[in-house]
C-alpha cells in the first residue's frame, strides 16, 4: 500500500471522479487522505490469506421478480425535476465536439 498521496495523484483521482478542485483543496485532500490511508496500514496486521470477502450479509442469492412493464404514472414528476427539458425530453450539452 502507498501511504502518502501527492498533489498529482489527487489531481488524477479528482479527474477520474469528475471533481474540480482548487489548489487549496488539492493540498488539504492530499494531507487528510494521506493520514487516513496511513491509518489503514493497521489492516496489514491481519492475516487474510484464504478468507472469503464479505460483499453482503443476508446470504440471499439470485433474487428475481417478474419483468413486467408497469406505468408508474410519474412521467410528469420525473420531467419536472430535470434541469432542462424541451418537448418532453432532457436537454444536455453536446457530447461530440465538431
Amino acid at each position: 500500500m502507498i501511504m502518502s498521496l501527492s498533489i498529482d495523484e489527487i489531481r488524477k483521482i479528482a479527474s477520474l471522479a469528475r471533481l474540480k478542485l482548487n489548489n487549496e483543496e488539492e493540498k488539504r485532500y492530499a494531507e487528510t487522505i494521506s493520514a487516513v490511508l496511513d491509518y489503514m496500514k493497521i489492516l496489514n496486521e491481519v492475516d487474510t490469506i484464504g478468507v472469503e470477502p464479505t460483499f453482503q450479509v443476508t446470504g440471499l442469492e439470485d433474487v428475481y421478480r417478474e419483468d413486467i412493464a408497469e406505468n408508474s404514472g410519474r412521467q410528469a414528476k420525473i420531467l419536472a425535476v430535470m434541469p432542462e427539458v424541451e418537448n418532453g425530453e432532457l436537454v444536455v450539452p453536446e457530447v461530440f465536439e465538431e
Binding site: 471522479a17 471533481l19 474540480k20 490511508l37
Partner: peptide, 19 residues
C-alpha cells in the same frame, strides 16, 4: 455541478473511494 454541490467530506470520500 459536483464541485459546487458537494461539501468537503463528500468529496473526500469520493476521492478515497475512487483511489
Amino acid at each position: 455541478s459536483r464541485e459546487r454541490g458537494f461539501p468537503e467530506e463528500v468529496k473526500r470520500r469520493i476521492l478515497i473511494g475512487t483511489y
